[in-house]
Design a protein around this nucleic acid. Structure first.
Lengths: 146, 146
DNA sequence: CTTGATGCAAAGTGTTTGCAACTTA
DNA sequence: TAAGTTGCAAACACTTTGCATCAAG
């Protein structure tokens, strides 16, 4: 799984005449080690633990490459900062976002995807990707707004 | 329709012991006049045309109130800035977003909504609101990526 | 008149960029 | 050794906030 991602990333770089630097390697590794969703800032933290010299700028620049190469997926759950998660080898899924505790729960639903595609055909719109987020209260946070 | 929104907003303010100032009234009116989706910056422009003294800070502060009162709905279609649209008296809808020309197309699909609610029940998650965005190419922009 | 609202400019946030020094292929 | 990459700090875009002054109820 790590190897696959490494291959994906290095082939992406090669094909674009970009270089696989030690920093990029470290950031890739850390992003693969992270579980769940993480922010650029968190990834910077992980990466600095592995190599103290890695800078914020390099993390942001590498994050863009990891996203473009298909290693990571980028999400905007609101709150101003983007979150990332591993994309390679995973099935597509959407998210519940708890507006009380921030918990993110994943789910897959093919019937919804099918209806989306149908809707796209109806509107003569070529869907490339989509984002479905269901906001509310997770089972722990109950159903009473703050 | 304008009266309804004015009532909604003034009752919201009253109930929170907030004041209906001339600036708030002007910003409300301008946001109701605007068609489609607009940004805070655009609303500031419209509002300044009506009352030159209205400031950016007041527009942002009022936008929050308009959102909370249910007069406006806030959307994040990416690109860093939030967009707003009238909410009052409109049926819920979701959006296609063209990644070439930025065009936003609205659609309604009850079957998708139903499946979302079903999924929520399945996960013991109390859905309060959701966001579904289908990104891709509109009929004008064809289907060939840039 | 009391409490909330305003405008201004400064401060925040998260992210991006210019540049000289440095690596990778 | 040519071309891309890095760290740093400054620049950015959007939004929020502190504060003295002002106005609504």
């Amino acid at each position: 799984m790590v190897q696959e991602a490494e291959k994906l990333f290095s082939e992406f770089l090669e094909q674009k005449d970009l270089k696989l630097t030690s920093q990029r390697r470290a950031i890739l590794l850390e992003s693969l080690k992270a579980r769940g969703h993480f922010s650029a800032e968190e990834l910077l933290g992980f990466s600095k633990a592995a190599d103290r010299t890695i800078s914020k700028a390099t993390v942001y620049r590498t994050l863009a490459l990891l996203k473009d190469s298909g290693v990571l997926e980028e999400h905007d759950f609101g709150g101003g900062k983007k979150l990332y998660e591993k994309a390679q080898g995973r099935k597509h899924h959407d998210h519940f976002v708890c507006i009380r505790c921030g918990k993110i729960i994943e789910f897959e639903n093919n019937r919804i995807e099918n209806l989306q595609n149908l809707e796209g055909r109806k509107q003569h719109f070529k869907i490339v990707y989509h984002s479905l987020k269901l906001f509310g209260f997770c089972s722990n946070c109950g159903s009473k707004p703050a």
